[in-house]
Design a protein around this nucleic acid. Structure first.
Lengths: 204, 204
DNA sequence: ACAGTTACATACCCTCGGTATGAAAGCGAG
DNA sequence: CTCGCTTTCATACCGAGGGTATGTAACTGT
């Protein structure tokens, strides 16, 4: 039976389910990112999304499970932005540089820092965090390095290890320019030093 | 009045206070490092130290305050080990290298990783963490870089920023060789790639 | 010796994560 | 259409744990 234009809109189960899941995810992303994981209660998230804890526990395995979904979502968005930038780069070396710069721009967002860099490791554990990050960001970085190495831009070596070390330095750089009283003004200096690190590291 | 050898040993307030503080700190360091901050209740720490929550709240401002003391303590120990190694190095460049290697060895300890690298940022916030780390580790690293730069070992630039980026890479390296199924065996590879990063970064 | 301070223990409150139960809204079969 | 069945929530409740208020015993200066 199609929708009636009465007071109650009749919808299918799948529509209801995905709608509430999306609202919950969006609200959780906003609150976790603003107040931090510990200071955000699940009931408050559900209430802000217009429902109760019961709905949240029906769609997600728990508070940490909801946080994990939010974490993955943020990484996925960062990865797509990063890949789009890298795809438009003229060569593999610029793709690497531009990708790193894009990651730093992601760190400009307070929610990204709070969820991905601060709370993520403590809530999900280091192994789970790096597994997810590998799936979305680290793999891209490593593959970019491999291409650049194959084309002679950078020196060989254990690129799995090296890409991860560079990733750690980038996270640190992202947090640095976030703490700065003038993030916009500090961006060029930090990004420059990060690119200098990248350049010094990889040039053979 | 000096101590009586009766059933109850008579002690001064300062002795009692420092003794209970030390026991509490040592127990908290052990339990926070083993189980993580969230999974460790303050009452459990106090009980394991032979007292109740009341004593803990008398000596420390709360759970996070106790954790902060534990955090500082671990950093202090790492810093002294690091400075001792650097002091015995033949030149400023080796001091830098040996210092970084010593930091990686600190990351071998599971408690250090859990407290300093995983829970620290989420519990204390990034600003507080980096302030403490600057006081103990980052300042040492930056000063070592300055000396090495003055002696011509490494290139100039914003050493405040660069030392922090290197620190981030070192933390990542420390977590990497911790996740490895064979940390002892992986140590040379990761440490080698880290030193390679250091060398490539700073040689000018 | 005796107030006053310090160093705890005990009892209590409140928030919050998680679970169990119940009800209402789709959904499929006859 | 209708009548079980599943899905999708809401409500009520439990227990753990951080924090606080209060009482009490141990020290301390005068």
């Amino acid at each position: 039976m199609p929708a009636k234009d009465g007071a109650v809109v009749r919808r299918t189960q799948a529509e209801r389910s995905s709608a509430t899941s999306s609202r919950l995810l969006a609200t959780a992303e906003e609150m976790f990112g603003r107040d931090g994981y510990a200071a955000t209660s699940l009931a408050a998230v559900a209430a802000a999304a217009g429902m109760t804890k019961g709905a949240a526990y029906h769609h997600f395995p728990g508070k940490a499970g909801l946080f994990r979904e939010v974490f993955v979502r943020r990484l996925r968005r960062a990865a797509t932005a990063l890949e789009r930038v890298a795809a438009h780069a003229p060569d593999s070396w610029s793709a690497l540089r531009e990708g790193c710069r894009t990651f730093l721009e992601c760190c400009t967002d307070p929610g990204f820092r709070q969820i991905v860099l601060l709370d993520g490791p403590a809530v999900l554990g280091w192994d789970a965090v790096r597994e997810i990050e590998y799936e979305h960001l680290l793999r891209v970085l490593r593959d970019g390095m491999r291409v650049a190495a194959a084309e002679g831009w950078i020196a060989g070596g254990d690129l799995d290890v090296r890409s991860q070390l560079v990733f750690g330095a980038l996270c640190e750089a992202g947090m640095m320019l976030a703490r700065s009283p003038d993030p916009e003004g500090a961006f060029p200096a930090v990004a420059g030093e990060a690119e200098r690190l990248l350049g010094a590291l990889v040039r053979g």
